[in-house]
Write a protein that binds this DNA or RNA. Structure first.
Length: 494
RNA sequence: GGCGGCAUAGCCAAGUGGCUAAGGCAAUGGAUUGCAAAUCCAUCAUCCCCGGUUCGAGUCCGGGUGCCGCCUCCA
């Protein structure tokens, strides 16, 4: 029952052996805080939070460092475009990002180093690279000398010559090699700057990860993660810098697939994203408000992390429907806030059928964190529970919930957050819904079926699904229903 | 052009050479319901094409075809 991990560097899945017994140190490339998050930005944190949770369930103490890039060309451009100070931009989007982390239940991140808090360390690191002959000053900054790096390109599987023949790298004046990359950018007039022996300026993008990772975790650590698109050049360059600095750096590299739409990656440079109607459907805030954060988390965890996730509203909706089914099955168990002991959950004595499913769950997670298979095991537990009664059923449901909780699912309040997504912020609509439901209840009592059904139809049109049950009537918000729900419900009450 | 990945039911999607190819959504039939919805039960694929290895391949190898990512900022 050891954990196996796919390493991008060796392209093999191998048993994980920690540097220090019982401990895991991980570094994940975090956001550059210059704009609203889209769904793609949520994937890394959710994936690595889930991985960290499984490590903890297997008894490891986890350190997970996720940087915040709070100085960068894009931040400066955004500030210039909006008339803000650069740090007003970065602080605003940092706060937004951290709120997303809380909403999504990402709780494994132990350190959120800000790039600007480590400038001195970066300056020292760059100075050491210059002293070692591995970096040089050019007209507009300090550059890393790629030509002296043996094995440059080993992560992304490319050779220096290939990179050059790519020909899309503009030959920059003063560079020894077109693949050399900037470590320190000299400040232009009006740009934010930090003092350094190489002149006032700011750190380049790649250097921050090398420096902050080693500052917080030392010259070698267990796992470095990030999105597939960061393999080259970002991670390749991190390796180059750190190795040139004499650091062993990450033992294992893990890369998650990218979120796509209609088979194509969603990115800032995607022409489609210029259409506000198009981009809105990937906006993180919009998605969390419309579908509920737990549904978004569940969606991202349903398939294994290395595959690209094809995202579209109907797929998220399908995931949400299945998730709600589990919520309803769990019922009151969802609200239990008792702290969970993963070791106990994984070893607690249970019936044979349930034990088999728990085994599948655990071995799926052990095998490179295959959350897709693990989730399938949860659904099979649901089917099992439906055929049981009494203490057997109770045992199955408890285990289903607890295993889900190890992955960050089934938190207290999640059902509300998913079923009522978007309603909380609209108190007028929420009030109207209650009024219409009350009127309908009265009509049903009077056996005025025509009136009751008309009210129900109005609710449906307004995007509210009515759920009659033995213990009264519940309702849920149907995601993605457009129109004027307030107007519809007002008219219905007349 | 270079490097890498993927092709499994209407849709999404697991699958570590070998019992009946996970799971979700949708659909259909049934139970339930004032009627619905929700819920429960049941049904629903031989895995892009060709060739090969093997007692046995969705799973390995070779060749096609198609799609995608990276090579420029990018989670």
């Amino acid at each position: 029952m050891s954990i196996r991990i796919h390493d991008t560097l060796t392209r093999e899945t191998q048993e994980f052996v920690p540097l220090e017994p019982g401990k895991v140190s991980m570094y994940l490339c975090g956001p550059t805080v210059y704009d609203d998050c889209h769904v793609g930005h949520l994937m890394g944190p959710v994936v690595f939070d889930t991985i960290a949770r499984w490590f903890r369930a297997r008894g490891y103490a986890v350190r997970l460092v996720v940087n915040i890039t709070d100085i960068d060309d894009k931040i400066i451009h955004k500030a210039q475009a909006t008339g803000q100070l650069w740090n007003e931009v970065s602080e605003h989007y940092t706060a937004q990002y951290l709120q997303f982390m809380r909403d999504l239940g990402v709780e494994s991140i132990t350190d959120h180093p800000h790039c600007t808090h480590y400038v001195d360390e970066m300056v020292r690191f760059i100075g050491e690279l210059i002293d070692a002959g591995r970096a040089y000053q050019a007209a507009d900054g300090v550059y890393y000398r790629v030509s002296l790096q043996p094995g440059y390109g080993k992560l992304s599987g490319r050779k220096l010559e290939d990179t050059q023949s790519g020909a899309r790298i503009e030959a920059q004046a003063g560079l020894e090699n077109p693949a050399d990359f900037v470590l320190w950018k000299n400040a232009k007039p009006g740009e934010p700057a930090w003092p350094s022996p190489f002149g006032p300026g700011r750190p380049g993008w790649h250097i921050e990860c090398s420096v902050m990772a080693s500052e917080l975790m030392g010259p070698v650590f267990d796992i470095h993660g990030g999105g597939d698109d960061l393999k080259f050049p970002h991670h390749e360059n991190e390796i180059a810098q750190s190795e040139a600095h004499g650091d062993a750096f990450a033992k294992i590299w893990m890369h998650h697939g990218l979120v796509q739409f209609s088979g194509r990656k969603i990115g800032k440079s995607d022409a489609r994203m210029k259409d506000p109607e198009f981009s809105k459907q990937f906006n993180a805030r919009y998605l969390l408000d419309t579908y509920g954060a737990p549904a978004v988390r569940f969606f991202l965890v349903r398939s294994p992390y290395r595959r690209p996730v094809d995202f579209e509203p109907s797929a998220l909706d399908a995931a949400r429907t299945g998730l709600v089914r589990l919520y309803r099955l769990l019922g009151d168990l969802m609200q239990d806030t008792t702290a969970l002991d993963p070791a106990e959950v994984l070893s607690r004595p249970v019936g044979a059928e349930l034990q088999a499913l728990r085994s599948e769950f655990a071995s799926s997670m052990d095998e490179d964190f295959n959350t897709g298979e693990a989730v399938a095991a949860l659904f099979r537990m649901a089917t099992l529970a439906n055929g049981q009664s009494g203490t057997d059923r109770e045992q199955t449901l408890r285990l289903l919930r607890d295993l889900g909780r190890i992955l960050g699912l089934f938190q207290p309040g999640d059902l509300e957050r998913v079923e009522k997504a978007g309603l909380a912020e609209d108190s007028e609509l929420a009030g109207l819904v209650e009024s219409v439901l009350g009127a309908r209840a009265q009509a049903r009592q009077d056996k005025n079926w025509a009136r009751a059904d008309a009210l129900r139809d109005a609710l449906t049109e307004a995007g509210i699904a009515v759920l009659d049950g033995a213990s009264g009537t519940q309702f849920e918000r149907i995601p993605g229903v457009e129109g004027d729900p307030v107007g519809i419900l007002r008219r219905a009450l007349e």
